[in-house]
Design a protein around this nucleic acid. Structure first.
Length: 149
DNA sequence: GCCAACGTTGGC
DNA sequence: GCCAACGTTGGC
């Protein structure tokens, strides 16, 4: 079992939206590294921090669980979607998504607080220029962060 | 809104 | 296969 951190802009989809919906398809990822994590490594039962990005207070807002393994992202085939990819076909899909299920909302643990802990200095999300929307979290980092929540 | 950092594209 | 140009991300 693995641990992850998944970013979402709360103006697009927030932890409250997930709490309301129960579970959701994590569609719209258009980065190969992030796709590969979903397609090749994420398994049902894995846990993820739900991270709010590009907002007033970026940080960890909750915890969710991978509830369904990756399958082709339907939006890549939909010309009316902003995630449409003309090079993708149902026979040869390019993008995949998992589904995640709400576990719990946490206090908002701000990015600045994550940065303040030397124990977390190696986290991908804290590295300079980091832009990946899905990153693995080390089990020790996970346990450390859970105690802060 | 700014801008540094990064990924992707496409001409050669 | 190189690399400049471009678009996007995301904290501030």
């Amino acid at each position: 079992m693995r641990y992850w951190l998944m970013k979402s802009e709360p103006s697009e989809y927030s932890i409250d939206d997930l709490a309301r919906d129960g579970s959701v398809a994590w569609f719209g990822v258009r980065n190969y590294q992030a796709r590969n994590f979903m397609r090749d490594q994420m398994k049902p039962g894995d846990l993820a921090f739900f991270y709010h990005s590009s907002c007033e207070q970026p940080g960890i807002a909750g915890i969710c669980e991978i509830s369904k393994a990756a399958y082709p992202d339907a939006t890549q085939f939909d010309p009316s979607s902003k995630y449409y990819d003309p090079k993708a076909t149902p026979d040869n899909p390019r993008w995949f998504n998992v589904e995640v299920r709400f576990k719990r909302k946490t206090r908002l643990l701000p990015l600045s607080e994550l940065r303040a802990h030397p124990e977390l200095a190696q986290m991908r999300i804290l590295q300079r220029g980091n832009r990946l929307s899905i990153t693995p979290v080390d089990p020790r980092e996970w346990a450390f962060i859970e105690r802060l929540l």
